[in-house]
Design a protein around this nucleic acid. Structure first.
Lengths: 177, 177
DNA sequence: GCGTCCATGTAATTCGTTACATGATTCG
DNA sequence: CGAATCATGTAACGAATTACATGGACGC
């Protein structure tokens, strides 16, 4: 259900094709939503049927034509309606926490190695986000209201990565003691 | 797929029935995994077929009999195998971030109200986790290795809530400026 | 020549949610 | 007397994942 709204939100920002949407869900938009291209194409068809979006075929030379989607007035209204409703809070499903919870079943070194790997992964992600921050949101106070909102979604991502990294360090310290 | 391992992990900690599992996924275990009772019963049947767990019917008086599950040796081995593999990192799907991303479509006050509500919700969750911390993990250094691992899953939850609350404050400050 | 990117899709399967169902017991 | 708790399930549906498929363009 909310995948459709995630797509609408992404299209609000910038009209694009299914393929491009999939890449955005993989990249910068990915820290608050993700979806495979199969999900996206299916959902785009439904949204077009409901007339919340319209697709425009853009002929291209040297590569396949693409179908560029943008919101209709109806789509904007529906999106606004959804935003006004209280969100249901979603639980994260972190495999590493499941592994820790059953930590007694394996050798300590296995979990420590996994924690180090996890730490590294999030360190890299943090750097990616911080580059985006520096390049696009150097002076947050001066952004337009809509841009501030978008900046805050990135801030959430940055904060999350910093916090996960700190947790990894805490975990490694406690488990090595 | 990983739901089965989440169940195995929970059973490692304490053998229990489907009903009790559902309650644990709703409570303390819930900050790293969640599942409905329908999912749990279906998965328990599959796990029993595969002989990763065995169920033992425990007659009770004054209430229905319950079927208590515990890991088999095979289950422990499979769990250990899974733990040794690198985890795939899961992306959170936070509706509030989708809403912010499309923030231009609604009146500022709607988003501010949602942020305040979100803030409140996480403040409450934090207090629940901190109570568990005080009651069960007063002196982390003195815990057994397995208990330290479990404590760290709670720590992740506590850290997350603190961070989300700080982010809410940052967001409200930026958007009101 | 091989892999990757562009661009879109179908099919099969598993996972997750919603609704419905039973039946006894305890609490107010 | 009604509601909630204990305990377990089935059925139907919708969402997500995985695998498979096409076919030209471009770089090494």
């Amino acid at each position: 259900m909310s995948l459709s709204y995630a797509i609408l939100a992404t299209l609000t920002d910038l009209a694009c094709s299914g393929y491009e949407l999939a890449k955005r869900f993989d990249g910068s938009v990915g820290h608050f939503w993700s979806a495979s291209h199969q999900q996206i194409y299916r959902e785009l068809n439904r949204l077009e049927e409901r007339q919340w979006i319209t697709g425009e075929v853009i002929p291209q030379t040297g590569r396949p034509d693409k179908k560029c989607y943008h919101l209709t007035e109806m789509g904007k209204v529906e999106m606004a309606k959804w935003i006004a409703q209280p969100s249901k809070s979603s639980r994260t499903k972190e495999e590493i926490l499941v592994k820790l919870f059953a930590g007694d079943l394996v050798e300590p070194e296995i979990l420590l190695a996994e924690l180090r790997r996890y730490h590294q992964e999030h360190e890299q992600q943090l750097q990616i986000y911080q580059q985006i921050e520096q390049q696009h949101f150097a002076d947050p106070e001066k952004l337009s209201w809509g841009a501030k909102c978008q900046y805050l979604t990135l801030r959430q991502g940055i904060r999350y990565e910093i916090d996960v990294i700190a947790w990894c360090k805490e975990a490694l310290t406690l488990l090595r003691a």
